[in-house]
Design a protein around this nucleic acid. Structure first.
Lengths: 214, 214
DNA sequence: AATATAACTGACCGAGGAGTCAGTTAGTAC
DNA sequence: GTACTAACTGACTCCTCGGTCAGTTATATT
């Protein structure tokens, strides 16, 4: 009767509040990044975390609160890495390159976190967070560009307009390619960086010398 | 008693099946593009279409069916425009430009349709449709590139890899910028096209001449 | 061993939303 | 006018999911 193989299977080990919180966050990261905010269910987070749903509410006031905690963590981490890497070098082209490399390193180490940020465009909260992030990156790109001397030809559009477009194009392109790379990991990271730099930097250099297409 | 101002307010006009179907699709386009597939409710579609929810089910077997009808319509329309515009000219740079312009025209005429395609990355069906679309565009870009002569230096990565990355970078960048433009309609369309062409084409031209960054 | 407390759970509630069905009514054909 | 059909509806069911609560149990402290 008291067959040990039928004994209360695993007298689940209790964790400290901090550890359990971290475990829940990890499970939530998986589910949220795979399904997106709205489609992610807390029941699934609970199940994957090996925990009851009620326990989640001991650590987070609501589903949104949980999402915000996740976003907060990774947004700050990502910004930190990119800014730090970029500020560590001097030349504009090195700054761009360092920023790109930092982003790709982040993608490599925490693919789920990158997906969390990029695969949630439809959710107002996550979408806004990503927009802000890209806006910052675009502003940084714009700074790199005005260091160079753009030479507007007569009849051209205002420089700020062109700079803003190019900056967003670059920031958006890098973001997109980082996401693309997650699904094409056979491509070596250096190939991605080199291609980005080749197209962007060579193009920019020519542009600042007054060259235009055709 | 029979005060005419209290008479049965509007003896709702009936439509033919085809017309009603079109009206429902239009209402669905609005709701789906604003909220995304999962968050969009058929109750809201019904309300905005001025129709009962049950009627929607007379025209579409399910919510997914309705989404597929929408996607089908606009995906084909978009492909058609871009391919037609691009095929109408000869030079590679003109083809790229024509394709970009066709996409932006589509964005201008049917902003909701573009949002339907781009603001639904998290939904498996819509996401897959957008992926296929971009894949096609990237393939077309790759074709434009191999027309030129890329000259691999010894020790370089295989050409196909570089071409694939650049093609996706361009396709993804254009897609992103089209979406960005929807929220920045003060920017003139020509400015967007010119910037895209300047960065991409000038960069590509230099690259095919064996130039690299630095 | 007794006590306190913090980690943890099962069972529940209410709202919202997909999908259904038994009808009602506007047009049409005679 | 009458009858027929196709457009159309209100009221319903079922289910998922965010959130709650009344407890139960592991562990640290004494």
């Amino acid at each position: 009767m008291t067959d040990p193989s039928h004994a209360p299977p695993a007298p689940r080990r209790r964790l400290s509040a901090a550890d359990r919180r971290a475990a829940i966050l990890e499970a939530a990261l998986q589910v949220f990044s795979e399904r997106g905010f709205k489609q992610a269910s807390l029941d699934e987070v609970a199940e994957r975390g090996g925990v009851s749903k009620a326990l989640i509410y001991e650590h987070f006031a609501s589903k949104r609160e949980l999402q915000l905690a996740l976003l907060d963590t990774y947004v700050h981490d990502l910004i930190d890495r990119v800014v730090r890497a970029s500020a560590a070098v001097e030349a504009p082209e090195d700054r761009l390159r360092a920023g790109i490399e930092a982003l790709l390193e982040f993608a490599e180490e925490r693919p789920a976190a990158l997906r969390l940020l990029t695969r949630n465009v439809d959710d107002p909260v996550a979408g806004a967070a990503l927009d802000r992030l890209r806006e910052e990156a675009a502003a940084a790109c714009a700074d790199l560009m005005v260091m160079h001397a753009p030479e507007p030809r007569p009849g051209d559009l205002p420089v700020e307009t062109t700079v803003a477009i190019l900056a967003h194009l670059i920031a958006g392109g890098v973001q997109f390619l980082a996401g693309w790379w997650l699904d094409h990991r056979d491509v070596p990271r250096t190939a991605v960086v080199e291609s980005l730099m080749d197209l962007y930097w060579v193009g920019l250099e020519r542009l600042t010398q007054g060259e235009h297409w055709r």
